[in-house]
Structures are given as structure tokens and as C-alpha cells.
Simulated scan of single mutants.
Amino acid sequence: MSFDKLIGLSMLAVATAVFTYYTTWVFVLPFVDESNILQSFFLSRDYAIKLPFLLLLIAALGIGSFVGNVLIKNAEKEKLKKSKKTQ
């Protein structure tokens, strides 16, 4: 198995585990008794909304920073091209 396939398989496994954990946390735990041992493996349900929102905010900030950085670098390249043409 190539290294790329191994990385892809591990990413798929992590995504599946996170999806299963979150789905159980949000859709199953409200129907499980509070004294059940299963409740100890999960955070409180308040975080079920707060964590995805925080991750979405961080992702949006990261994408915005990346796009801004690319736009600034492209503007600098264009500025250098124009200054070389005028010389």
C-alpha cells in the first residue's frame, strides 16, 4: 500500500470516528439516562454546539487569512511587473 493511500485511509478513519462520536453525542445521549456509564465518555451537550461553531470560526479565519495573503502577494507581483515595464 502506498503512503498516499495510507494517509487517505487514516484520514477516513479519523473522520469516521469523529462523525460517529458526534452523532452519538448529539442524537443518542439525550435519550440515555444521566446515571449511565456512557455519559462519562462525552462532554456536556452545551459543547455540542459551541465546539463546531468554534471550529467553523477558526476555519473561516484561516481561509480568509490565506486568501488575503495570496491577494497581497499577487498585488506585489503585479506591482513589480509594472515597475519593470516602465524601466
Rank of each mutant, 00 (worst) to 15 (best):
L43D: 14
G62N: 00
S2C: 06
N36M: 05
S83F: 11
S35D: 07
V32N: 09
A59W: 08
I63S: 02
Y47E: 05
L61N: 09
L71F: 12
F31C: 01
L71D: 11
D4F: 14
K85S: 12
L6Q: 09
D33R: 01
S40Q: 11
K5V: 13
N36A: 14
Y21D: 02
V26S: 05
P30T: 00
N74D: 04
K73D: 07
N69T: 13
I63A: 11
V67P: 03
A15N: 07
I7H: 02
D46Q: 04
L12S: 11
L38F: 10
L57H: 05
V18W: 05
F31I: 03
T24S: 04
F42D: 02
F3A: 10
T23A: 10
K79S: 12
K81F: 10
A15L: 12
K73M: 14
V67I: 14
V67H: 03
A48G: 12
T23E: 03
L80T: 06
D4A: 07
S35G: 06
F66K: 15
E34S: 10
R45I: 15
A17V: 11
L43F: 07
L51A: 08
L38S: 13
V14D: 04
A60R: 01
F66E: 02
K50G: 00
I72E: 15
Y47M: 08
S40I: 04
P30F: 03
T86G: 00
K84C: 00
A17L: 03
N74A: 15
